[in-house]
Amino acid sequence: MAFDRGTAGLAFYQSSTRTSRHDLPCKVSCQFCHTPILDEGRNMALVFPTLIEFRSREERSLFKPQCHIFYAHRVVDIPDGATKWAGMDGKSEVL
């Protein structure tokens, strides 16, 4: 993923230090309306899927979930056939 205008218009929040700096991990939101965009970690980014505009079904299929983590704490069932892990993938029980 790349932001085509750099970080202009983005706000960062680092919860452990309660600062507005881009120290990982951090939360990224719109600087103007404060809409959450993603949670950025050291080796991952959790993007809010409703913010992605797909141009085709084929493009959308590239973002199909490969598995679900922390499924033991789910709010709703997701009957999509993907592997469901109780905790972290590969480090917990498969449900």
Rank of each mutant, 00 (worst) to 15 (best):
T50M: 12
Y13N: 04
T83P: 00
L10I: 07
K64I: 11
L46F: 13
G81M: 08
A86D: 06
A11E: 05
Y71I: 06
P49Y: 08
V75Y: 13
S92W: 00
G87Q: 06
I52K: 10
E93M: 03
Q14T: 10
I69E: 07
R42A: 12
M88L: 14
L95T: 00
D23V: 13
V76A: 10
D77S: 07
T83H: 03
S15Y: 07
S15N: 09
L24Y: 12
A86V: 02
D4V: 01
A8K: 15
L95S: 01
N43T: 12
C26I: 03
P79V: 09
Q66S: 14
H34M: 10
A11N: 05
S20C: 09
K64H: 15
H34E: 14
F12W: 03
E40T: 04
P65I: 09
F3H: 02
T83I: 07
F70R: 12
Q14H: 14
H68F: 08
A45F: 08
T17C: 10
C30W: 06
F12G: 04
L51Y: 06
Y13W: 15
C30G: 07
K84V: 00
G6N: 09
T7Y: 12
G87P: 04
T19I: 05
F3P: 00
A11Y: 00
D89V: 02
C67A: 14
S15P: 07
P79R: 09
C30F: 04
D23I: 13
K84L: 03
L46D: 15
R74T: 05
F12Y: 06
H73K: 15
R60I: 01
T17M: 12
I69W: 04
P25D: 05
V76D: 12
D23A: 08
N43E: 15
Q14S: 05
Q66T: 08
H34S: 13
A45Q: 14
A45T: 11
S20R: 13
Q66Y: 06
I52T: 05
